[in-house]
Design a binder for these strands. Structure first.
Lengths: 77, 77
DNA sequence: ATAAAATGTAGTATACATACTACATAGCAT
DNA sequence: ATGCTATGTAGTATGTATACTACATTTTAT
């Protein structure tokens, strides 16, 4: 049941992306995915594969756990 | 292409699981997945969703990046 | 006000992670 | 040797992440 909508993954992708001054298209290119995929993730419409999470974290230079969490993300950091 | 077999995710699940003295069944139960799923992951037959990676990391009390990596895992650490 | 760029929404198609069942093999007790 | 527990292998079924296209809406700049 890890693909169960009842336990979503929260993320701070948008904030981290904006902090680096990237557009979704740019982040998508660097992560090697479609730009819409970034949109879906930022809107938390679904949660990424681990591969994608690792790639995005690498691009945004963050620990995976700094970007993604099983519990709702606090605003500050 | 994040679901591309050409970029696998390496992991140290088995070592970390054994270090905690857990069987696959036990780890599976704690992570809320089927015990065969743990087997597939340990054999690196496929890579987990982020949700599952986060759950496994939590059970094994490790940073995601301590357990999973886009590049082959070094033995020590 | 207009245009361009960024993001949102909608819909289809595909690949793969996961669940599950069943049986085989290996290891380890006794 | 027998049995038990852990793990491997094989196969099917399902959901969902991702790709992609097209168009709408919002934002930003001029």
């Amino acid at each position: 049941m890890s693909r169960n909508p009842e336990d979503p993954v929260y993320n701070r992708i948008e904030a981290a992306r904006l902090a680096k001054g990237l557009t979704r298209q740019e982040l998508a290119d660097k992560a090697g995915v479609h730009y819409q995929t970034i949109g879906y993730l930022e809107r938390e419409e679904y949660s990424p594969s681990l591969v994608l999470a690792l790639r995005i974290s690498k691009v945004l230079v963050q620990e995976v756990s700094d970007l993604f969490s099983l519990s709702p993300i606090r605003k500050e950091k």
